[in-house]
Computed example of a mutant assay.
Amino acid sequence: MRDTTIVPAGRPGSATLKFALGNFWRHRSLIRQMTWREVAARYRGSLMGVVWSLLLPILMLGVYTFVFGVVFQSRWGGEAQGGKGEFAVILFAGLIVHGLFAEVFNRAPGLVLGNSNYVKRVIFPLDILVWVALGSALFHAATALAVLLGLFFLLHGFLHWTILFLPLVLAPLLVLMLGMGWFLAALGVYARDIAQVTGVLTMVLLFLAPVLYPVDAVPQPYRTMLLLNPLTVIIEQAREVLIWGRPPDWFALGIYSLVATIAAAIGFWWFQRTRAGFADVM
């Protein structure tokens, strides 16, 4: 993991997104190794190890299928079509997006605090800690997505070709997550109770997003709250390409991408401008 281009932890360097992407590319090998180490550490000591990352989504999907398909006989939007697992598939698609966001959002305030040994080193690119957290979240989201696609294939006998658009649908959310990750990672050093707030906000975002219900089920005056939720557009577009087999709304994703890029730029700027004081308060 030797890298002669590492930026000293105490020196902010450039605060532009170009510098952030350059740092990612320079340290991609280090990020990959740290990501895998983090994933493996989560299951260290368990009998089945990383296999749990696949078994847990299967168990969750089984529970959703039984509860919503068998017990409640739920149908998305009140429509009668679809088998017992159809509601569970639609629900699980929203939960995957929310879970991806929530993992980084909840962990971000403690990323720097939990790696104080890196802060005190003369050479370490602290900003890549957010990339590592994002990589770990993507790994678990990918295993859950594999389970979702497996059930969809069992129910319908095919997969929509539009699933190829999924990386483009998720990309703006990932950019936004990076920006929020950098901002919260730096803020968490100075305001350590911020982690309590993110936990509550994560639950609020879950219930104010079309995860458990469709947007059409919400009365018109209250739909603005859903549209202001950063997860709503991505969840809706992910279902479009995964479940309904329709191309995404490129205009909506374009606007989202612009906002996400601005948020990422602000988040990285904040991280770089505050990182010099990390060692003083830890």
Rank of each mutant, 00 (worst) to 15 (best):
P248E: 00
V215M: 14
W244L: 15
P221R: 05
G179S: 10
L226T: 11
L178Q: 10
L228K: 12
T162G: 01
P247W: 11
A171E: 12
I194W: 04
V218Y: 02
N229V: 03
A186K: 06
F207Q: 03
V241E: 00
L206I: 06
E240S: 15
P172T: 10
L212K: 09
A185G: 02
Y213G: 00
M177P: 00
V218D: 07
P210L: 06
F165V: 05
V233L: 15
P219W: 13
T224Y: 12
T162M: 02
T232N: 02
Y213H: 01
T162W: 01
M203P: 05
Y190H: 13
L166W: 06
W244Y: 15
P248G: 00
L173F: 01
A195T: 14
R192E: 00
Y213S: 02
P214N: 11
T198V: 13
A217F: 05
P221Q: 08
V189I: 10
L173T: 02
F207R: 06
M180L: 15
A171F: 15
L168V: 12
M180E: 13
P247S: 11
L164H: 06
R246C: 11
V175H: 07
L178C: 11
F207K: 10
Q196K: 13
I194G: 06
P247Q: 10
P219Y: 13
N229M: 04
M180A: 15
L174S: 09
M177F: 08
L208H: 10
P210C: 04
V218R: 01
L205Q: 05
G179C: 06
A238R: 00
Y190G: 10
L208G: 08
G188V: 05
A186F: 03
I194T: 15
L226G: 09
Q196W: 13
F207M: 08
F207N: 05
L187I: 08
L166M: 04
V175W: 03
L184G: 05
G245C: 03
P221G: 06
E240K: 14
P221H: 00
V218A: 03
A171G: 08
T202K: 06
M225V: 15
A186W: 05
P247G: 09
L231K: 11
Q237K: 05
L174A: 11
I163F: 14
F165H: 10
A185I: 06
L164E: 00
D249N: 14
R246H: 14
T224M: 13
Q220D: 14
E240Y: 12
P248C: 07
V169F: 05
D249M: 09
I243W: 00
V218F: 03
I163D: 09
R239F: 07
T202L: 04
W244R: 14
P172Y: 09
M203W: 12
Y213N: 03
Y222H: 08
I194F: 08
T198I: 04
Q220R: 15
T202A: 09
W182Q: 04
P210S: 09
A209M: 05
A185D: 10
P248M: 06
G199Y: 01
A191L: 15
Q220M: 14
L164G: 02
A238D: 07
L174T: 04
A191C: 12
W244M: 14
A185T: 09
L228Y: 12
V204K: 04
G179K: 10
L184A: 01
V211L: 07
Y190A: 07
M203Q: 13
A191N: 13
R192I: 01
L201M: 11
T232V: 11
G179E: 11
